[in-house]
Amino acid sequence: MGPVELLHMSVFSQSFSPCGRFLAAGNNYGEIGLFSLSAALSPEATAANQKPVLTFTAHEGPVFSLLSTDCHLMSAGNGEVSAWSWAELIKKNVKPLWTKRPNYKSSLEIPEINSMAVSLRDNSLIVGGGDNNVHVMDLEHGVFKSVLQGHSDYIHCVSVREREGEILSGGEDGAVRVWDSRTGQSVHCIEVYKYQSCARPQFGKWISCLTTDSDWMLCGGGPSMSLWHLRSLSPTSVFPLSGCQRNASFHQDMILAVGEGAFVSHCLLGGDIKAQIPCTPQSLNTLQLNTNSSEHRVLTVGGSSNHIDVFTNLSYRAFSLSF
């Protein structure tokens, strides 16, 4: 990988290993880099420890989504999902356990997969991407068992509400759809851009980030990022963040969000911006908190750069991992 390629690299997805000691990150060249957090966080860490311990080409297109189950790493490339064994990856054995492709109708261009979520209740993988549909895959049998149709443009993000058995998806068409995972029917459709308080017509109407926590949903994109109460289906607070948000996460009584702009935004549930912590990439695509290991509890963010910023303390950037 030459210096020009590094200059134009973007990191789209991250996932921590089940043991919490490794971080997998996917970039726009279809590569997955494996970083050793335990080495990078050790007191005697050198610059070499901030480089990936393993880099391999997983897919042809960019790796937009990475996901870890209790022993597997799922990666999504151009229209395909691959599973890798974490134990083998750590031993630097690069061989996918399986590669599956959802049933696409159009064949002119292979639709990308933008987001994946796993539902533990029925052991299924929810995949949303370029063909406007949400595909549900049975992880036990390895077959795609249902297709949730309804969006009129491609899907940016999916999320799962375990307790209620509901799947949420947000798309380019500006709608957040709530699906019943058992029947496969769309239960609700929230068109966020139609709400005066959230709409930002100068950007557009797409929903590019979506996350849920019990009765609460956080969504943003073209419209301002907003916190919704799902039972009443109404926005409770709107966050006055300037750019479009691409990834957000609940953390204790706070919301962490990244998107356009070289900073991580800390927001209070009430709708105030508490802090904006600067980081290296000019715009950010992904944010990930490591909850798998108590000693390596860090926040990592990646974006339009070959660097992945690591926050050991949420209030400042500690160092950067880099491809």
Partner: peptide
């Protein structure tokens, strides 16, 4: 919301105008 014709009419053939998380 802006009135009038587009400054740059679509002439190129595109399958999709935007794609992926960063559109």
């Amino acid at each position: 919301s802006v009135e009038g014709p587009r400054e740059f009419p679509r002439e190129k053939m595109c399958l999709r105008t935007v794609r992926g998380p960063n559109r």
